[in-house]
């Protein structure tokens, strides 16, 4: 119990819980649209942005690295849009290309930085690939707080617009909603959450926080509002449990632990959710006997 009030635990727990709550809600939109892997591509693509920001600033400063990540996230998304809109290449191919090429650029830049004596203290950079929640600072948590609050506020303000647009884009524009504006809004929220969350869970795994909660929500309800509430709560609870495991037991990094907890929840929901496998079977048996 002492652990629950320790300073490091609190910092990390507040940060990851908030982050997962917000990402769970915002990520649900991409899951419904069938574009969940865009988050994966953007997550990986932020890597060169982080290295470049480091090269410019010279230290692993949280804010500048986050800015670098956002810039490259936006560039990556722009590339993906451009390729899918103006060639026969599908979203699947474009994502794989951009994800791996940008990550490759990051790798090349990193090898340059590490081989160059002008740059020191490069070891912190790897934290952004795999996540290192234990090293989270107060400033990291503030950044997460600001990003989460802003994106949740925008989500609430544009709730109906986002909902109608996601369901029926053409109808939404006939009743005066600007579809490209809403699309841009959702994407910027996603990119910003990825950027501030990299330190906590890393570029590779962050996509899970955007997908898994929404999937859990969709397995339990068929109402949008309930789905996003479940998604947010599932994200937050998993983050808290995961962080607790990570602090209580040695050798459990927070990011991966959170993702394991989330995956367990996904599995349980697949069995027992409203449309789950067990539920389905149960309904069938009941249906036959009556």
């Amino acid at each position: 119990m002492e652990l629950l009030t320790s300073y490091t635990f609190l910092i990390v727990a507040i940060g990851t819980t908030l982050l997962s709550f917000a990402s769970g809600i915002i990520g649900t939109i991409s899951v419904i649209k069938g574009q969940s892997l865009i988050g994966d591509a953007i997550g990986h693509a932020t890597f060169p942005g982080i290295i470049l920001a480091f090269m410019l600033v010279g230290v692993t400063d949280t804010l500048s690295l986050a800015v670098g990540a956002v810039i490259f996230g936006v560039i990556a998304f722009f590339f993906i849009q451009m390729i899918t809109n103006h060639s026969k290449i599908t979203l699947d191919g474009a994502l794989a290309l951009i994800l791996s090429s940008f990550f490759g650029l990051g790798m090349a830049l990193k090898s340059f930085v590490q081989g160059n004596p002008a740059f020191q203290n490069t070891q912190g950079i790897d934290d952004y690939i795999f996540g290192q929640a234990a090293y989270m600072l107060r400033l990291d948590v503030y950044l997460i707080l600001i990003a989460s609050v802003i994106s949740l506020l925008l989500f609430i303000i544009f709730y109906h617009q986002i909902r109608i647009y996601t369901f029926d884009p053409i109808y939404s524009s006939t009743i005066g909603i600007n579809p490209s504006l809403i699309n841009f809004l959702v994407l910027s929220m996603t990119i910003i959450l990825i950027a501030v969350g990299l330190k906590a869970v890393g570029a590779i795994l962050i996509v899970n926080l955007l997908i898994a909660p929404g999937v859990i929500g969709l397995l339990w309800s068929n109402r949008f509002k309930t789905v996003i509430i479940i998604a947010g709560v599932a994200g937050a609870v998993s983050a808290f449990i995961g962080t607790y495991i990570s602090t209580a037991f040695a050798g459990f990094p927070a990011g991966p632990s959170i993702i394991i907890v989330l995956s367990v929840f996904v599995f349980i929901s697949m069995l027992f959710g409203r449309k789950g496998l067990v539920t389905r079977k149960f309904k069938k048996v009941r249906g036959e006997s009556s």
Binding site: S36, L37, L205, N208, I211, V215, P256, S263, V266, G273
Partner: peptide, 24 residues
């Protein structure tokens, strides 16, 4: 139950997370 792209995203991150935990 789950869309194809979402299941890819969940499966690989879960397995990768297990690997990282085992290593660390």
């Amino acid at each position: 139950l789950i869309k194809n792209d979402a299941s890819i995203g969940i499966v690989f991150t879960a397995l990768f997370a297990i690997a990282i935990i085992l290593i660390s």
